[in-house]
């Protein structure tokens, strides 16, 4: 088990998400950057759905009470094991009594920490991803312990060649959304040429953008949405729905992010610039 000395800025337990419960209005959730999440598990030969920590902006401070192996992927956030810097994208052995700390993120937004065998936290509707109103907590809290299976084993020296994403890339590949055709050519052109910036209102539910599209579209009959759906509100605001977004909405669905674009956006934050690159299916 692991003791939480400090919670970090916003640290949650995530896995692949709660697929199959959307008919009850339950968001999919799951790791914001599924790409980085999956690498973290691969580095330890974990099951692809093993739960990891998603650490936003600044990681927690943790004390290990049992030995294990861990690995970090995603945003660049320097980790220190007993005050010694450790590398990302590489399995790291931890011993009983070791203390792990993090600096603030220097590139990207979310870092993933996998542990051998995955975190053994509360499972709700077949999934461990923390979400308010579904799991008991919506993030890790100091009073609780992080549990893992100390008897999990791996073939030692597991090495994976990693191809990391360029988090500075501003281009998001997107498909047309169901209501894209309602936009006039001027608005459509804006999506093709304009740069957009991420507003301070960005979290696991959605990212609002600063720039507006000045075309009023009627609200639609409430309809299904997906993580990565770009909505246009009646006042022209663009909202990109992320993993914890509600499963239906009444705003026009203008664009749909590709999976890679959604993972890349999860590594961006306030003031970061993005551009949309329309591709066809």
């Amino acid at each position: 088990m692991i003791e939480i000395l400090k919670q970090g800025w916003h640290t949650t337990i995530q896995d692949l998400g709660r697929l199959g419960s959307q008919s009850f209005g339950v968001p999919i959730s799951g790791a914001m950057d599924l790409n980085a999440f999956q690498w973290a598990n691969k580095l330890l030969n974990n099951n692809s759905s093993a739960a990891c920590l998603e650490m936003t902006s600044k990681g927690p401070e943790l004390k290990f009470h049992e030995p294990s192996f861990i690995a970090f992927t995603g945003a660049i956030m320097q980790a220190f094991l007993n005050s010694k810097p450790v590398k990302m994208y590489k399995p790291i052995e931890v011993k009983k009594g070791d203390v792990l700390k993090f600096s603030s993120v220097t590139l990207g937004c979310r870092t993933y920490m996998a542990i051998l065998g995955g975190f053994q936290s509360e499972k709700v509707l077949g999934c461990r991803s923390q979400y308010k109103g579904v799991t008991l907590e919506d993030r890790i809290v100091k009073e609780n312990l992080l549990l893992f299976n100390r008897n999990a084993f791996t073939q030692k020296g597991a090495r994976v060649k990693t191809k990391t994403t360029d988090y500075k890339d501003v281009n998001l590949k997107v498909y047309q959304g169901p209501e894209y055709h309602l936009l006039n050519s001027h608005s459509q052109n804006e999506f093709k040429t304009k740069q957009f910036t991420i507003s301070p209102s960005n979290n696991r539910m959605g990212y609002r953008l600063n720039e507006k599209i000045l075309q009023q579209l009627p609200e639609i009959w409430t309809a299904p949405t997906l993580p990565g759906t770009v909505q246009l509100t009646p006042d022209g605001t663009l909202i990109i729905l992320m993993r914890d977004a509600q499963v239906t909405g009444g705003y026009s669905r203008i664009l749909q992010l590709s999976d890679n674009a959604l993972n890349l956006l999860a590594q961006k934050s306030t003031k970061d610039v993005i551009k949309f690159e329309l591709i066809t299916l």
């Binding site: 697929l19 199959g20 959307q22 008919s23 009959w221 409430t222 309809a223 299904p224 997906l226 499963v247 239906t248």
Partner: peptide
């Protein structure tokens, strides 16, 4: 894998 319903749509 799954289907979500809206007023006049199925995803």
């Amino acid at each position: 894998s799954q289907i979500t319903l809206g007023y006049c749509s199925l995803l």
